[in-house]
Computed example of a mutant assay.
Amino acid sequence: MLEGDLEPWQEMATMVLPDDLVVEILSRLPLKSFCRFKCVCKSWLSFSSDLHYRQKLPRNPIGLLYQKREHGTSIHLAGLPSGDRDIDTTLSFVPCHKFPLELKDCSNGLILCYHGGIMYSEGISDPIVCNPATQEWMEIPYAEPGTALNEINLKLCFDPLWSQHFYVFKFESSPSPDPDHGTSTEVKVFFSEDSTWSTCLWETDDAFWGDSLFVNGVLYVGHLWGHCLLALEAPGTRTQLLNDRTIQLPGIPYATDQKFYCYDGCLCQSSGVLCYAQQELDGCMLRIWSLEGADRWVVKHRLSVNDVFGRDMLLRTNSRGLWYFDYEILDFDLERELVILVDLTTDKVLSVSISTGEGSEILKVPGFFELYRSLLYVPYYCKQLPASVPQGAQD
């Protein structure tokens, strides 16, 4: 048959699309669909390991992980519209111990939890990193739980676009021997590459124990009351010290005056770029910035939220007469153009479209202030944890 004799649909079937266009099409698929399709096409599979393309491929959140501050409460997932409901976020595949699992951290599909912790006097025991999408888990060796006076904060760091290995940063704070400083904090790192802990790699007298995010090999940790971030580069197994720098946050500083009580906003990433969201002073608008370069913040979005909550006044006063916002920013995702907010007056968790400003309820939790932790969950459908990591037993 000559080329001119082909039917139109046959001519289209013989066309070869350029890689850039194929990746653009694949980037619009749900993550689970992409993972299925790449199993039947070698060229599509190769995009996953291509540094130029893999940042564009889909990794969409499917819901909000949360856990209430009550004895024996399971971890739950409040699904977003079109989310995957088949994932066991209760972690029933992890063996039971004396205490139920407590959600500690989540990083690109891997979850850090432990038996015991903030609700129990025994402290942290048996830290576990697991993948709910593949139902695999591993225990983290934890031979140095510290003393009863020490405060321990674990930060999980995993980004499959940067490395197939993960890290756990341990911030251990103890009373400082210097009377002019309240605490002294040491930082150690667990390497999944060889399942070992480092010695102390970094020390500080500052209270960098706040919310954190791991982006492109850098762990960003918020200060408890200073309006800034600590940036720590993920080390190699032979590293003796951590490279660090401090970044000032944009927006409203913590507790701008004696009459206004303001928490820092929320960290997120978009295509490998650190982003930050916070309310404006009256609470009626919120801004989203991206970090351009080392320390320059650029406004990407400005969103009105009055219609979302159906009221004009979004400030309240507490028992001490201090003004505060009556809603919080739980998380946001610029790829899906949504922001997750919680209305503290109704205990409703809302998904708000950045492009349209419309909101929809995804969860109602009576007594939201009693939530222990809430984290946006992005599944990781790799069939196994990083190859060098011992896997948990599969039933």
Rank of each mutant, 00 (worst) to 15 (best):
R85S: 13
L242F: 02
F332V: 04
V298R: 11
Q67D: 05
G265W: 08
W137D: 02
V342Y: 03
G357W: 00
Y377D: 05
E11N: 04
G251Y: 07
I152V: 14
Y114M: 09
C96M: 10
R296D: 15
T346K: 10
D84Q: 08
V94Q: 01
R238S: 14
Q10R: 11
T147S: 15
V349K: 04
L363F: 07
I252M: 07
S270D: 12
S49P: 06
S195L: 12
P145F: 06
L314K: 07
F37S: 07
R59W: 08
I288H: 01
P235Q: 03
S351D: 03
E172H: 07
V218M: 00
L224R: 12
F325D: 11
D395E: 15
P235K: 01
L51F: 04
M285H: 13
D50H: 01
I111C: 01
H71T: 14
W225D: 09
C228G: 05
L286Y: 14
G272H: 09
K300S: 11
L334H: 06
T14A: 15
P177H: 04
D88I: 08
S270N: 14
F260D: 14
F34M: 00
A78Y: 02
E102K: 10
V23P: 03
P250F: 00
G63R: 03
D20F: 03
A387Q: 13
E361N: 11
E280C: 14
Q391K: 11
D347Q: 02
Q391G: 13
R85G: 11
N131P: 09
